[in-house]
């Protein structure tokens, strides 16, 4: 598969180089909101939306920065855009779905410090994706994040019923589970390379 085709970029971001399990981006919400499948789903959707908005804005901003040759301001501009995008999502969710707003709680504003989103904006700049490629990349990353979050939430719901030694209850077991998931996702590594 052509490494610059939209399908490959999408699959690469969603599965092969999954943001959470292969690149270690966005671990805080991954460990923090993965206790229940429902909240995990909502969090995934909110993150996906912010990813799309910030990816599009980052593309525009980078164009301006390059034009005026002030690339050293990139980081500051990106983080400011992400913070405003999160604020926008927060206000929209609060207005149209107060129930969801309460369910997500503190994790909604915390999307700002989700490194998956800043990472996405930086990666798409480093790899010099054009506009459509950036869109495919951010959708793929969002889908990958949601998939990882949902899988983890499903596992943790099962884990509640398991008998564990007292030592391993809590975060340690969550990390071990994440390790196993990450091991499983390494199986996607060969995907797409056979046609190269």
């Amino acid at each position: 598969m052509d490494p610059n085709s939209l399908t490959f970029i999408f699959l690469n971001a969603a599965l092969i180089n999954n943001f959470v399990l292969a690149l270690f981006l966005g671990l805080c919400p991954f460990l923090g909101v993965s206790a229940k499948k429902e909240t995990a789903w909502n969090m995934g959707m909110a993150t996906m939306f912010v990813m799309l908005v910030s990816s599009i804005s980052a593309y525009g901003i980078n164009w301006i920065l390059v034009k005026f040759e002030i690339e050293f301001l990139r980081l500051i501009c990106y983080i400011a855009v992400i913070a405003s995008a999160v604020q926008l999502v927060e206000m929209t969710v609060k207005k149209f779905s107060p129930g969801l707003f309460r369910a997500l709680g503190i994790f909604l504003p915390l999307i700002t410090t989700n490194c998956a989103i800043l990472g996405l904006a930086l990666f798409q700049t480093f790899r010099e994706y054009d506009f459509l490629q950036s869109l495919a990349f951010s959708t793929g990353a969002g889908v990958g994040f949601t998939v990882a979050l949902m899988l983890m939430a499903g596992l943790r719901e099962k884990l509640e019923l398991a008998k564990l030694p007292t030592v391993s209850q809590g975060a340690a077991m969550g990390l071990m589970l994440a390790g196993l998931l990450s091991l499983a996702f390494m199986g996607f590594a060969g995907l797409g390379s056979s046609h190269a």
């Binding site: 270690f24 007292t166 391993s168 340690a172 990390l175 390790g179 990450s182 390494m186």
Partner: peptide, 22 residues
């Protein structure tokens, strides 16, 4: 060195600290 190792090693350290604490 691959990604899963990171999760496993951090998990193991946390287990060790939890054991010491208990």
């Amino acid at each position: 060195i691959l990604p899963p190792g990171g999760f496993f090693v951090l998990g193991a350290w946390l287990l060790l600290f939890e054991y010491l604490k208990q």
